[in-house]
Amino acid sequence: MFEARLVQCSMLKKVLEAIKELLNEATFDCSDAGIQLQAMDNSHVSLVSLNLRSDGFDKYRCDRNLSMGINLASMTKIMKCAGNDDVLTIKAQDNADNVMFMFESQNQEKVSDYDMKLINLDQEHLGIPETDYSCIIKMPSGEFARICRDLSQFGESVVISCTKEGVKFSAAGDVGAANIKLAQTANVDKEEEAVTIEMQEPVTLTFACRYLNSFTKATALSPQVQLSMSADVPLVVEYKIGDFGHIRYYLAPKIEE
């Protein structure tokens, strides 16, 4: 038996928003520790890794490990039926071929349940080696979304260049060229507005704009985003999810032919 209760179901709505542009379907692996998802996009260029710890939920029970293959368009239809303040309970029997979503209004006067068929997915798990990154940039997630959106008007690729002075995002194309430089913030009142850089070595890498823009669909999950870069390895874009865990996106770089 699997059962997870979430008082504010808006978190799950935001998670779904953050993955559905990259993935059509995904397997949610449920265990005693929580819910995990790891899936590559169809083109095998980016990977989504989601971790929601069991202790973040208001109630969590998972007697046996359970892998739920879910069509994300179907799940989106169901989650649209929930109010942001509804209390969500997800339930599944062991070895079930369906999962139930129950939404209760705060005053408990309205209770809805939706039963969704699970699908069988061929799981392809990737081993992600521990990496010491040359540059770790923390910045406001809204600012990162804005930069990705603005630069995608100029070219298909964004060059991210990090030194100890700051980080530069550049794009170039038919219109011309664009450069956005962010310096480390000296003093900020709010931690979430800070730009901080931990640098071992300067790094410059090129990435496809389209994927960066898809990652920014997670902006609502966290006020800050963390970018981890090393030469010739995938970029990691991480958004913390409150008391639950995180969503990480890995994106392979573009290299000179």
């Binding site: 990977l47 990737l126 496809a208 890995y250 392979a252 032919e257």
Partner: peptide
């Protein structure tokens, strides 16, 4: 010209 790398080149299938 830039070539898009694939993730499988960096990570292992397990």
């Amino acid at each position: 010209m830039l070539r898009q790398c694939l993730l499988t080149g960096f990570f292992m299938n397990i």
